[in-house]
Simulated assay, not measured.
Amino acid sequence: MFNLALQYNCDLDLHLDNWDSAEAFTLPYVAQKTIEYNYQGRVAVSHIASLTHVSDSQAQDAIQLIKNADISVTVLPTRIKLTRVAELLEAEVNIVCGTDNLRDPFIRYGDADLLKALLLLAQLTGYMANRDLERLWQTISNNAAKMLRLPYGINVGNPADLVIFDAYSIPEAILHQTVRLAVFKSGKLVAGTMQGKSLTVETASLGLHTLIL
């Protein structure tokens, strides 16, 4: 896969170690190959549930290795077993919150709403303080953009992709599962409760994927 990625100049996204057992633990191997191929910053892995089943020392070694390899990790809180999210965050690994299979034999429920996934992630990790919720918010905003190697922030020339929430703060948006007032894609209003209403928005210099109002 690394050879193919190099040949076609593609990033790698691997569903990895999605097994509730220490037997399926290929994460260190993938991290080593990432460094070997100089592919730091271009590899993402999802699930890595087996990380919770190896010893603490093995887990810490693996976490340091993926940190050195600059691998992004997508965590799926709707999954039955969650990986070591808190330890990965403390190691400053680029963590992204995502949604998993929906209404199939693996996951019977869900609707792909990232705000709901973020609330579930907060509940499963026990993160309750405002500063912790603000930290988790990065997993669906800055961190996600970094994983996809997309521009992020309010800068001239950035894509005008943003979501406007009816909330005064990040914790309020998460805890109240607040209404999405407007969703913009490339400066065009595509969804939200503002649709159909008169609205004037200057989008030329906006680059937010998420905006709290």
Score class of each variant (00 low, 15 high):
78 T>C: 14
206 L>C: 07
97 C>R: 02
32 Q>V: 02
102 L>R: 15
51 L>I: 04
182 A>N: 05
92 E>G: 10
50 S>Y: 04
131 R>F: 06
95 I>L: 15
93 V>A: 01
187 G>Y: 09
155 N>I: 07
142 N>W: 01
132 D>R: 08
95 I>A: 02
1 M>L: 15
178 T>P: 03
41 G>K: 04
163 V>K: 07
128 M>E: 15
65 L>R: 09
112 A>Q: 09
7 Q>I: 08
42 R>F: 07
22 A>I: 01
78 T>W: 13
143 N>M: 06
152 Y>P: 01
60 Q>G: 05
162 L>V: 06
104 D>W: 05
141 S>R: 00
24 A>T: 15
124 L>Y: 06
32 Q>P: 00
120 L>V: 11
180 R>M: 05
142 N>H: 11
68 N>A: 12
168 Y>A: 15
152 Y>V: 04
148 L>T: 01
26 T>G: 01
191 A>R: 12
179 V>D: 02
96 V>F: 09
61 D>S: 11
121 L>E: 02
23 E>P: 00
114 L>G: 03
89 L>Q: 07
209 H>K: 08
72 S>M: 02
83 T>C: 14
62 A>C: 12
67 K>Y: 12
16 L>C: 09
31 A>P: 03
102 L>E: 14
173 A>E: 01
99 T>W: 03
155 N>F: 04
45 V>A: 08
180 R>V: 03
155 N>G: 12
29 Y>M: 13
24 A>W: 12
31 A>W: 06
120 L>G: 05
44 A>E: 07
131 R>V: 05
34 T>I: 13
82 L>V: 08
